[in-house]
Design a protein around this nucleic acid. Structure first.
Lengths: 232, 232
DNA sequence: ACAAAAGTGTTCTGTCTACACCCATGC
DNA sequence: GCATGGGTGTAGACAGAACACTTTTGT
């Protein structure tokens, strides 16, 4: 199966994209994985991904694979890192351009088995054995998310369109694995002026329902053009 | 020349690494470029780089190319981003894993033409027309350096082993394109406890010579393991 | 003695932290 | 009326910003 192919006198590796998909639900950070039905690594779990085609760039490839394997589209996706170790795939030389994506899980409400039969969400505390070097990719994706959520408004990509401040705080606490002061968090997040108050609150709970907000994407774009920095 | 090669039924692109090399000299941030002697883009300037071999990963490839084309080794180098647009190289499909490197320019004292005949340092304010999509790569490298120098001790990689605080400040001011207060800068950088005082100062100037320091790499490693964050 | 850059300390201001009580809702 | 979580304000600590004068050295 392995053949040597040369162009400019050099062998060419296969190139794939893989995508680490984060969701947030029930106070837990989760990852969408697909169970491999064929060798190599049959029975292990892997990120959705696949081979880059001749007529698409890596961004397009990552988005296409996401759509084909999970039905997801129009979600936040960003290049993470490229993995090019010699022996990462037993079938031959494979270079993988890894991506990570953020899903409004409660909104899209993806079910395991949308397109791929054995897709499943796993809390990051209970990740099953992963195929290839996907554990390394996962570690890097989590670090990227942790690092970037502090100074870019990524959190909102993981929550429904309308969310409460306690939900947002819970997300930050979960992702960053820290505790935050309720009063200070609310002050800081409202001080950015980037939350739109909908004067509407959650009903049907045995306690006061929290107020709903949404993120003002347009205002954020404006502000970031004038050198403003979001920061938690 | 272009042939279609399939493995797992998919065509394989060529894979290269390119490296954006930063140096700092004379109060200027500079980039090392190589003039292309052959088509395509003959006469334009490009980053050193080349095709990844069968028995090396991308890090090894980037370091090897650096050594072969500039004589540089054992310098700071890090993966930047992967460029995989369909038409970035007129010869065919080429995926480039870009790197950036930092050189202690005054120390290594690389001369234009070490190995590659037409290597030359350019101040970033006077970059000549670049080959392929290298202007995009350069922009991304500069942004990465600007972003990362604030919260990781990258600055020291661009200065000689022993440097003065005014030199270090000058570097930060140049890279970040801002002015910093001399007294506050000194206070902050010394407060980290990461500078070793050599009680030795620059001589032969028509004014007071500045004191020499070096960066305490070992202490930084220790501190960063215990959750310390460098920040300017 | 003078020009040029290095070195040094204090005050002010604004931001982050810590913390306790009342409010709304469903049962 | 009680249990549960939501919402609010203030005082103290701390870090960052602003700022002027003295010191060293070569010419």
């Amino acid at each position: 199966m392995e053949t040597k192919n040369y162009c400019y006198e050099y062998p060419r590796p296969s190139v794939t994209t893989d995508c680490v998909i984060f969701g947030f639900d029930n106070g837990e950070l989760k990852i969408l994985l697909i169970e491999r039905g064929i060798e190599p690594c049959k029975g292990k779990w892997a990120f959705p991904g696949g081979f880059m085609r001749e007529n698409e760039n890596s961004d397009e490839c990552a988005k296409r694979e996401l759509r084909e394997e999970t039905g997801l589209q129009d979600i936040f996706i960003e290049q993470l890192f490229t993995f090019a170790d010699v022996d990462r795939d037993p079938r031959g030389r494979v270079v993988t351009i890894a991506y990570y994506a953020l899903v409004k899980l409660t909104q899209y409400n993806i079910q395991a088995g949308d397109d791929a039969d054995n897709a499943k969400w796993f809390p990051i505390s209970q990740i099953p054995p992963l195929a290839f070097d996907h554990d390394r990719i996962l570690r890097m994706a989590i670090n990227r998310l942790r690092g970037k959520i502090r100074y870019q408004p990524l959190g909102f990509e993981l929550l429904p369109e309308r969310f409460t401040i306690p939900e947002l705080q819970n997300l930050y606490e979960t992702v960053l694995e820290i505790k935050l002061d309720r009063r200070n968090f609310r002050k800081k997040i409202l001080a950015t002026g980037l939350l739109i108050d909908h004067n509407e609150s959650i009903k049907g709970q045995p306690h006061k329902g929290a107020n709903l907000y949404s993120f003002d994407e347009g205002k954020y774009q404006q502000l970031s053009n004038t050198g403003f920095n979001f920061e938690i």
